[in-house]
Design a protein around this nucleic acid. Structure first.
Lengths: 197, 197
DNA sequence: TTAGTTGTGTACCGATCGGTACATATTGCT
DNA sequence: AGCAATATGTACCGATCGGTACACAACTAA
């Protein structure tokens, strides 16, 4: 504990609430009043703890990435499954996430990427989103390279193209979820998408 | 020509400019000042001609659908090509649209669908977006049913699942374009996606 | 020529935006 | 006890939001 009065709210829980609001409404449609009400704190406390709207957004989306997005990748390396089944597991867990009625709906990162045009996002926020996207793609490229080396993928297959293929499906699923397409339909679509593997 | 002073601007060209602004920035990040400046008119003229922000948005996205989205479907019925090549042509023309540097970037409909969460879009605007999406899916379902009847598709194939599969790719391509993924990469990804047909 | 109708431009409305000044309350350190 | 440091709550800042009142200009019909 440092010197001075102690913070009366839990910074991590407040950030979780902010993440949910940004996830649901996006950057521009989220007001500081929305945020302070959801977080249960006043504006000066918010600014003291998180800087400003843009910095709070960046903290929120990075938290989302580590808490919701990254864990999906674990499905790709599940033991004792064929590559196709592991890819299906990955995409299915994405579909479950974006349609989960207990969460905000869709994918926070995909929605922010859609908002990232013109001056839709302030510069540092846009950079943060781009870096997260690039990191996801890099991880998938490395995964497919590894699978290829293990002989689970033809010599002629392109890890880069396969990574982009999974990314396009991931982003597309997020958009479909915003249009209230059911999990069942997403799963049938995934069955189609996975025939390539 | 009716009674009274004549309109000094071209309503159709003004709508085209409004479409470009909404396409680039989305609904919430677009202000009436943005719009009036791009359209070259004053606010009372805008409100007299288009009603309000929401109605202008609806007119803009319906114009987009008829001018940019619907024509893509023509690729699916091109003469003398195998089904796979026609699907590739459809997806490639989507990729060209969403990466066209002379246009706003991404897909207006996909971006609006992403924004369509919580109160991200006012109710009538959200309904308009949903109807456009449903219409696109219906058209694709009808197309695949027809192809199946012609024997270009296995008996066990599901037109509904295939339609959703194309829709997820279409939406995903739009999001990737907002992240500045190059047309070349999108085309390689499409080569992967099209192996199912 | 005149009356009625419609578009244009200015100037403004209340509400909300992101962000902050300031007084007060609570803490650790001396 | 008293000082320095940090947090909280209220009340406010200028700017911008979507939308409109009003005076005036331009047009058709009679």
């Amino acid at each position: 504990m440092g010197v001075g009065r102690h913070r009366e709210f839990d910074k991590s829980e407040a950030l979780r609430e902010a993440m949910a609001v940004f996830w649901l409404h996006g950057y521009n449609a989220t007001s500081m009043t929305h945020l302070t009400e959801a977080m249960g704190i006043n504006k000066p406390s918010l600014y003291a703890a998180f800087g400003n709207k843009e910095k709070l957004f960046i903290a929120a989306i990075e938290r989302y990435a580590s808490e919701f997005a990254s864990p999906q990748l674990a499905q790709l390396t599940a033991d004792g499954l064929e590559l196709r089944q592991r890819v299906r597991g990955f995409l299915t867990s994405v579909a479950r996430l974006v349609t989960n009625p207990d969460l905000a709906g869709g994918c926070f990162i995909a929605a922010s990427t859609s908002e990232m045009n013109g001056d839709g996002l302030p510069p540092q926020a846009a950079s943060a989103v781009s870096e997260i996207n690039a990191g996801s793609t890099d991880t998938l490229v490395a995964f497919f390279r590894d699978e290829q080396q293990r002989g689970n993928l033809g010599e002629k297959a392109s890890p880069e193209a396969l990574a982009d293929y999974l990314r396009v499906l991931q982003n597309g699923l997020a958009v479909m979820a915003r249009d209230k397409v059911s999990l069942d339909r997403l799963e049938r679509l995934i069955d189609q998408a996975v025939l390539n593997f």
